[in-house]
């Protein structure tokens, strides 16, 4: 478990003080895959570095498994750090060491016997699917393979927490997906809590169960991934959601349309998305429906659909149809294209 309690971080230079974090309150529960999303400069990188004290908080405290690391003696701090694994955007593997030695490094540092190291490293390499690369050097590996090695290395000391600092930002979409699936496996099989930071909302959608949106050193919105995707409250969260869920009225339609057409945005969640809503509405009421845009994606293994339709017909019929949809517990709202 990780808990941020009113954490502030200031960077002081001779000329000015920059406040990178302006009071962060955040709780990452055991077993979470918690994603922090934000544009660069939002402070998310500072935030993740506070967990294992690569940066020290200026105010407030960060509790890791109930302990404030800042109050520990150097020796105890090093011991605690071994319970927190970390992977990086640029992998940070030692180019002078083989894959085996890279993964073994945390164990070597703790003075683990060679035989034990051998068993553990092979086990880890097998877990990440790179047992055959033990004798290779990092420069002979692809980006995705390097990150797998990074993950194996981070898991060597059996941590309870894994920090992922933009771990997939340097990878192509396909490799990203594979690495994310591996992280999911890490979370499930070892019950390791994952805190990740990213600027890609697709990463959040793919593996996180909770999300916090950061802007200007603050968390502006947080909650379950599903809630934030379904009803983003802040503009920045809406922007992020829009990068993966397209629920905008197509430009071509807007430029061609005349007058003030009635347009509905409908969100289906979970089981609702399986219902034949449109045909029912068309049969029951004297309205015509024209689908402008539709898509269904899965968030947290729950189907999540959104639909944009143009409705034509008598005003009273349209009203009834609208009420019917609402009565079905489906989120529907009217939108206008010409303000």
């Amino acid at each position: 478990m990780i808990e941020f309690q009113n954490v502030k971080k200031m960077y002081e230079s001779k000329k000015q003080t920059v406040e990178a974090l302006k009071g962060i309150d955040l709780v990452v529960e055991k077993g979470d895959i918690f994603g922090v999303v934000g544009y660069s400069g939002a402070g998310k990188s500072t935030l993740i570095r506070l967990v294992n004290l690569l940066e020290r908080p200026s105010e407030g405290q960060v509790l890791v498994n109930g302990k404030a690391l800042t109050s520990l003696k150097p020796k105890d701090l090093r011991a605690e750090k071994k319970k927190i694994g970390m992977i990086f955007q640029h992998f940070n593997l030692l180019n002078s060491k083989t894959v085996f030695d890279n993964v073994a490094m945390p164990l070597i540092l703790s003075g683990t016997p060679a035989k034990e190291i051998h068993t553990r490293v092979n086990e880890l390499l097998e877990f990440v699917g790179l047992l055959g690369k033990a004798k290779n050097y990092p420069e002979q590996l692809s980006g995705g393979q390097k990150q797998r090695i990074g993950i194996a290395r981070a898991l060597a000391t059996n941590p309870s927490i894994l920090l992922c600092d933009e771990a997939t930002s340097a990878l192509d979409p396909q490799t990203t997906s594979a690495v994310l699936q591996l992280l999911k496996k890490v979370n499930r099989e070892y019950n390791i809590t994952i805190l990740l930071i990213t600027h890609e909302m697709s990463v959040i959608r793919e593996i996180c169960n909770k999300v916090a949106v950061m802007e200007g050193g603050r968390i502006v919105e947080q909650g379950s991934v599903f809630d934030v995707f379904a009803k983003p409250q802040t503009e920045i969260a809406q922007n992020f959601v829009r990068t993966v869920i397209h629920d905008e009225i197509p430009q071509s339609y807007i430029s061609q349309s005349e007058g003030n057409p009635i347009i509905w945005k409908i969100n289906f969640i979970g089981a609702n998305s399986g219902k034949p809503l449109l045909s029912t509405v068309a049969k029951r009421f004297d309205v015509d429906l024209n689908v402008l845009s539709a898509n269904i994606s899965e968030i947290q293994e729950t189907p999540f659909g959104n639909l944009i339709i143009e409705v034509t017909g008598e005003k009273s019929e349209i009203r009834k149809a609208f009420d019917y949809i609402q009565a079905e517990n489906i989120l529907v709202q009217e939108v206008r294209i010409h303000e």
Partner: peptide
């Protein structure tokens, strides 16, 4: 690379 030192610190070296 400073990242390597950072990785070392994260490992508790």
């Amino acid at each position: 690379d400073k990242g390597i030192i950072e990785a070392a610190e994260a490992m508790g070296a």
